[in-house]
């Protein structure tokens, strides 16, 4: 496998976490423009843990994802009552706050003779864990896809439970959901925390693969992409956002024919899809049809 291919696949995998985190909230009826904040919090948190404190990678990632989940839950407490545009603006404001705070964060310590740590807007270099421990690009890619598989599988299972159905009910219509005994505020905080953790896993992976992060990476465009992937790929299943990422990064970016025009094509694609398929390619109706067909062919086979 060429280095280029491994690079693209790793990118797709990492950004997929961001797309899935936006998806969890979209399903619950909330449009967040701030998922990049949790990606960033975990990137910094896990980077600090492994590069500065010498923690092992798994613990650093756990720590980063937990921080991101906690931050998301705390943001959800005051924003759970907001809808539509108001929620979108509140999450965007929070994410910009995080980005600006990271620009001010300067904290370096001496690790084996070199100063390591975030340097404000100049960023955070030398998050070298995977190089120091001889983890190859292929191995790291397998780690990304292993975790991605766990998240997608977990979400798919969750969506079949009452909890998962309750989240979709909230996304459709809150008042009858509440009349059916669903604690809407608690479910929204749960969904937010879950989305923060998922974005956090992606952020931690990102920091360790790239080894250098800076606040400017986590601007609103990153969040907009995360959001758009779910809208393109579809909101009927957790596989939808993955399809969105593959279409954009895997296809538009890799096919060099669009070089330089990628964002124009991408923007047009989003606009077109929102008009003809407002809930994405794999929307609920399509997913339902596919599932029924699978069940039926299963019956025939037996």
């Amino acid at each position: 496998m060429s280095d280029y291919l491994i690079g693209v696949l790793s990118n797709i995998g990492m950004i997929a976490f961001l797309a899935l985190s936006a998806y969890v909230l979209l399903v619950t009826g909330s449009i967040s423009f701030g998922q990049q904040a949790y990606f960033a919090i975990s990137a910094y948190g896990s980077g600090i843990a492994t590069a500065m404190w010498g923690w092992p990678l798994w613990l650093g990632m756990l720590w980063g994802a937990a921080l991101a989940g906690l931050a998301a839950a705390l943001v959800a407490v005051p924003t759970a009552r907001l809808h539509g545009l108001y929620f979108a603006v509140a999450t965007l404001a929070f994410a910009e706050m995080v980005r600006l705070l990271l620009q001010m964060l300067t904290w370096q310590i001496d690790v084996d003779g070199t100063l390591i740590g975030p340097m404000g807007s100049e960023g955070f270099r030398e998050i070298r864990y995977i190089y120091a421990h001889d983890i190859s690009a292929v191995q790291f890619m397998l780690l990304i896809y292993g975790l991605l598989g766990l998240v997608v599988g977990g979400l798919t299972l969750m969506e079949r439970t009452r909890l998962g159905l309750a989240l979709r009910m909230i996304g459709e219509d809150e008042i009858p959901a509440e009349a059916l005994g669903v604690n809407v505020a608690a479910c929204k905080i749960f969904a937010a925390a879950l989305s923060g953790i998922i974005a956090g896993i992606g952020g931690a992976l990102y920091a360790h693969l790239i080894t250098y992060i800076e606040p400017a990476l986590f601007n609103v465009m990153l969040g907009v992409h995360g959001l758009a992937y779910g809208l393109i790929g579809g909101l009927g299943t957790a596989v939808g956002p993955l399809l969105g990422v593959v279409l954009d990064i895997g296809f538009l970016e890799s096919v060099r024919a669009f070089a330089g025009y990628r964002m124009i094509v991408f923007g047009g694609l989003v606009a077109l899809l929102l008009i003809v398929r407002p809930r994405g390619l794999l929307d609920e109706v399509t997913v339902h049809r596919i599932v029924r067909r699978l069940i039926r062919s299963d019956h025939v086979a037996h």
Binding site: L165, R168, E172, D173, P176, E284
Partner: peptide
């Protein structure tokens, strides 16, 4: 509900 409020996406 006065105007039916089912969850149309769900079965």
């Amino acid at each position: 509900f006065q105007n039916i409020r089912l969850f149309g996406q769900l079965t």
